[in-house]
Design a binder for these strands. Structure first.
Lengths: 132, 132, 132, 132
DNA sequence: GTGGTCTAGACCACG
DNA sequence: GTGGTCTAGACCACG
């Protein structure tokens, strides 16, 4: 799984850059790349790193604050918010939902159950490591 | 799996409506809801059904023509393009990729392997039906 | 110089089909493929041959009548109009204009005079046949 | 060579304005009036200058981006794309093709070879200047 | 200020 | 009836 930088933007996507950045930060947090209370890059720092305007980063951070994902301490920095326990359950529910959607699509594409199972086993093995 | 209409738009998403519609049509075709050479809703029809401007639908259809997903016959209608066999394999690859991403996220969230497996079994059962 | 049919339409062009057909007929006449007083295909005949709607052919013929290029005899057919002598001079002027535009473009592209001359000689030879 | 503005539109032509504009910009670039990386007029600026709607200019610029002729930097402007060297050869081929078509038409009109030659010499002299 | 999206609505091309 | 073009004008994203 090659990855340029933790956060990835696609400038030719129709989705606005600020919205992509919001999703990317949420993903980094959800995946545990950034932990609760960890300091994340400042507006300026991130703007330079991503080659975008600080205003754009600021807009994304605004949104993330509103969504309770990060918290800003003026003059200090931006930090990952502590994840409320409730968020845990919500995340599990999302996972379940995503699995169901993938399976539904496989069914719609007439993928045989056995083939789908094979894809699943491979995905788990690649990610969690060989069983036991 | 509740679903309002075959095609679903989220008007509060930052992704432009026309881009969402492009994805939705591609999804409907990929899932087999619309078959090659089938006539799909006219620009005006779809605009009314989705509550958006015909120009917006037209822009999406333009894009879909450019991507080779549909073909337009002026004065006649819009039709699903014949799917090249290569698209089949590509779709399977996408399925695999999505599964891997879900699993990776579960790992990042420290979801125990057993829990993840439970979610999977439930998703397959709900969708494909109980194993014989 | 391969050529499918005397008249060629490009259905993916942004220029309307009827307008393309007008130009194509004028070109066929200008090139002498259809001579004054010669009968040209009927609306229906041409519509079938070109795979377009008779209404579209009719619209083109209307335009050609208005421009004095063809004349319609109801119940008889459509004929190339006699070219007034004045048209001859006009055509020569057009040729001169086109040549000047091509040369101007060559100059703008910094094509050396000698190279341009070479292209010209080749074009004349290919078309009129070897000198003398 | 009278010319109102670098880009010329014919509002009475059946070819859509946006398509004419696409061709005009390509021509301006091909002729070297606009160089690679040069900033070309903004959507609004050009719309005002040409007396058309900004949306129409935007549609043309969209097409030009798709064709790789220009590149857009949001919030900054529109720029001529670097021309691949391959485009040079293509352009020469086009010149040759246009010359051949003019000559073919002259032949079809029974223009004597000597007369055609006279037109050519005059065109070159007027444009490139008198031969040394 | 620069490009992008969307609406409302008119009118055209094609069948 | 079906898609295509264009306008006038509002509002958004990005710099």
């Amino acid at each position: 799984m090659p990855e340029r930088y933790l956060l990835h933007l696609d400038f030719s996507s129709p989705t606005p850059v600020y919205a992509q950045l919001v999703e990317e930060v949420k993903r980094a947090v959800a995946r545990g790349h950034w932990k609760p209370d960890e300091k994340i890059p400042s507006v300026r720092e991130l703007a330079i790193k991503l080659g975008i305007n600080p205003n754009t980063v600021a807009k994304s951070y605004d949104e993330l604050v509103a969504q309770g994902v990060v918290r800003v301490q003026r003059g200090v920095g931006v930090f990952v918010a502590a994840t409320p326990p409730e968020a845990e359950r919500r995340k599990l529910g999302e996972l379940a939902g995503r699995l169901e959607r993938v399976v539904a699509e496989a069914l719609a594409m007439n993928v045989p159950r056995a083939d789908l199972r094979r894809l699943w086993v491979r995905a788990v093995r690649n990610t969690y490591g060989t069983v036991r």
